[in-house]
Design a protein around this nucleic acid. Structure first.
Length: 274
DNA sequence: CGCTTTGTTGAAAT
DNA sequence: TATTTCAACAAAGC
């Protein structure tokens, strides 16, 4: 499940491989045409033909290939992967889009669940309008968090999953950050103290930074690179996917419930609801 | 079969 | 009326 650290891992992996490369054409399989949102392969080809990749950036969970005068933005959703080696015969049915470069090599977008999307746009206004601050940027401060959420009656987990508040947090890292902060996922935002906002802020930063340093979390299906490299943050998980196991910081047992329609893991002892 | 996953959408509830 | 929650959806694997 690629969240910010996984997308950043992919970005760093792809950057040296794709920088300066020139697009020739875009392609979609005949039986599935939704991966390129809103445009046909032919239209996309017209838009990107001859354009070179100036830089690779990331915003939240979005990976952006910046061309001279436009952008090709990828959202991996749950199972999207980007690579350059020719896919095996049996994985070809999961290729939802591919691009040909000027040296006749390719960029493949493989997506088993088919929720991933690629968007062409002339600017990134649409992205900036929908996303909140980057958790590792200077704009992300305890004051921002409290000002944005302090009055809300929403549960803290739902609020943190909202991409317009902090961009890039998903199910894994919200559960982990809340555990580190000692906050119950169903805690109402309005009941969180100044001290806890401070703690939550640092918990988010520390968790995301540590996950990036370990190339993300390979829980079920996240791999990056041509060699199917896995992220190493799994070993650092305190609650996610550890249902019934002892909490790593106290004697509690991790429980799994559902909050905001998402599987939610927490330790009832160090994350009490008050 | 039913549950899981992300993010958007629109309806329903508070 | 505004905020918040919820169900549906898109798709396939286990």
């Amino acid at each position: 499940m690629p969240e910010l650290p996984e997308v950043e891992t992919v970005r760093r992996h792809l950057e040296p491989l794709l920088l300066g490369r020139r697009f020739v054409s875009a392609h979609l399989p005949t039986d599935y045409q939704k991966a390129l949102s809103g445009i046909s392969a032919k239209e996309c080809t017209t838009l990107i033909y001859g354009k070179t990749i100036q830089s690779l950036t990331r915003r939240g969970k979005y990976l952006i290939l910046n061309l001279e005068d436009s952008h090709l933005t990828f959202h991996l959703r749950m199972t999207g992967r980007i690579f350059q080696t020719e896919p095996e015969e049996q994985e070809k049915k999961h290729i939802t889009a591919w691009f040909t470069l000027s040296d006749n090599s390719h960029i493949y977008f493989k997506d088993v669940r088919k929720f991933g999307r690629i968007l062409w746009s002339s600017d990134l206004k649409w992205l900036e309008e929908k996303l909140g601050v980057e958790p590792l940027s200077a704009e992300f401060t305890p004051e921002y968090l409290e000002a944005k959420l302090g009055e809300k009656k929403q549960r803290i987990k739902s609020a943190l999953l909202d991409q317009s508040v902090v961009a890039g947090l998903g199910n894994i890292y919200v559960d982990e950050a809340l555990h580190l902060a000692g906050l119950h996922p169903e805690q109402s935002c309005s009941g969180i103290s100044r001290a806890k906002w401070l703690k939550l802020h640092s918990s988010i930063v520390v968790t995301i930074q540590a996950a990036i340093d370990l190339n993300g979390t390979t829980f079920q299906s996240f791999y990056f690179g041509e060699e199917e490299t896995s992220g190493e943050f799994v070993s650092q998980l305190n609650v996610f996917g550890r249902t019934g196991k002892p909490c790593k910081t106290c004697h509690g047992l991790v429980v799994k419930t559902k909050v905001a329609q998402r599987g939610t893991h927490y330790c009832p002892v160090c994350q009490p609801l008050r």
